[in-house]
C-alpha cells in the first residue's frame, strides 16, 4: 500500500468496489507472528471462558500426553494478531489483509469463520502466516448498514513449514446505517 491510501479511524483502507475487486486472489507475504505461544496468554484465554481442560492447565500431564501443554484451539486466530506498538512506532503489520482492501465504509464486523486444524498447537510454538483474498461480494444492505463481505483464507505454518491451521473468515466492511 502507498502512504496516500485513505484510511478510516480503525485503519481500514478506503476505496471503491471496483478497486477492491482487483484484490481478489491477492496473497500477502509470509510473515512470522510477533511472539511464540505462551503460557500466560493461553491461561488467561481459557480462564475467560472458564475452560478447565487440563491440556491447558496441568503442565505435567499435558507434557506426558502431548509433549507440552496445548494452546486452546480457539486462541488460534489470536496468534496472528500483531502487537499494537513496537519500538520504532506503529504496528508491525495489519491484523488481516481484509482491512487492507480498499472499500467504502468506515467500519467492519466479523460474521463467519471456518477453522480447520491439522496439528495441535503447543506452548512455545512460533508460527508464520500468509493470507489470501478469496472473495469480495457486491454491495449488500444488512440491519447494521451497507457494505461488502470480504472472504479471506489464512494459513498458519509451524517452524518446519507444515500447515497447522487454515482459517477462512468473512468480514463485513460497511457504513453504519443512520441511528
Amino acid at each position: 500500500m502507498t502512504s496516500a491510501t485513505e484510511r478510516s479511524a480503525v485503519g481500514t483502507a478506503l476505496g471503491s468496489y471496483e478497486q477492491a475487486r482487483e484484490w481478489i486472489g491477492r496473497r500477502s507475504k509470509t510473515r512470522q507472528t510477533d511472539v511464540a505461544v505462551d503460557e500466560s496468554r493461553c491461561k488467561l484465554f481459557a480462564a475467560l471462558s472458564e475452560d478447565s481442560n487440563p491440556a491447558y492447565w496441568d503442565r505435567q500431564w499435558a507434557t506426558a500426553q502431548f509433549g507440552a501443554p496445548l494452546a486452546p484451539s480457539g486462541l488460534t486466530m489470536s496468534l496472528i494478531m500483531p502487537l499494537p506498538w513496537k519500538p520504532g512506532g506503529g504496528s508491525s503489520s495489519p491484523p488481516s489483509l481484509a482491512v487492507e482492501v480498499p472499500l467504502p465504509g468506515q467500519t467492519f464486523i466479523n460474521v463467519d469463520t471456518d477453522c480447520e486444524f491439522l496439528r495441535p498447537i503447543l506452548w512455545g510454538d512460533h508460527f508464520s502466516v500468509y493470507e489470501e483474498i478469496v472473495h469480495i461480494g457486491p454491495e449488500k444492505t444488512t440491519r447494521l448498514g451497507c457494505g461488502h463481505f470480504v472472504t479471506t483464507c489464512m494459513n498458519l505454518l509451524d517452524a518446519q513449514g507444515r500447515l497447522v491451521a487454515r482459517l477462512t473468515n468473512v468480514l463485513y466492511r460497511y457504513e453504519a446505517a443512520p441511528a
Binding site: F45, A46, S49, S73, G74, L75, M77, S78, T113
Partner: peptide
Amino acid sequence: STIFFHGFIDR
C-alpha cells in the same frame, strides 16, 4: 469477539 465464541465452543 469472534475469538471468544471460538473458545466457548471449544470448551
